[in-house]
Amino acid sequence: MADDRLVIAGREFKSRLWVGTGKYKDFAETKKAIEMSGADVVTVAVRRVNITDRSKENLLDYIDPKKYTILPNTAGCYTVEDAVRYSRLARAAGVSDVVKLEVLGDERTLFPDTAGLIEAAKILVKEGFIVLPYTNDDPIVAQKLVDVGCPAVMPLAAPIGSGLGIRNPYNLKIIMEMIKVPIIVDAGVGTASDAAFAMELGADAVLMNTAIAGAKDPIAMAEAMKYAVYAGRLAYKAGRIPRKLYATASSPIEGML
């Protein structure tokens, strides 16, 4: 598995587990959980600098951009204009031209506004961004995102932060079969078996935040996710046995009394 690298837009990634940086107790815990997860891609949000309390530490003092690929996201954006604006700000802030694009459609479900997503992706690709779109588990939308120039697609497993796991494995499987770019299952994972399941289906990577940060012991869960993603990938590559309704003995009849 040493040479089993994930390549997106010519960039090579060691880890197939990508993690978010929200909801942790403090930056020290964030750093430790990320280290334990083995992730080399770390997603961050773009927000106003606190100008009244400058004593506040910066996340990037804890997560070295030389060691990790910092993936800015447009979390919280509900319009094409906002998503484009936040992406441009993220690039101007100088970590990279890669963006995890979110255009949300509804506050309660945080489901993506897929029409807006495609439109925003189109604009940003033209501006030279490497756009990794957070999308619904819709194969047609996934294809349209590829058509406008996204080098990977990130369909959800379940609503953000819900922990419901892989709600529609069949759609995800269709996306993985139909779409010829890397598929990163993003959002909705609850525990290690969900992450392993996503990888067994054929996902190229899994991105999660709450499943780790919201666990009773985030550091231990980060480690569990590392192994789950690794095991799921190995199982996918190994090729599972077909499901059968009836038993097949695994010991020979020959030699029995």
């Binding site: 949000a45 600098v49 910066n58 996340l59 979390a75 993220a90 949300l104 993003d186």
Partner: peptide
């Protein structure tokens, strides 16, 4: 003037 930076966040 808006001064923006990166903070902890995964998805919104």
């Amino acid at each position: 003037v808006e001064i923006m930076s990166f903070i902890g966040g995964g998805s919104f």
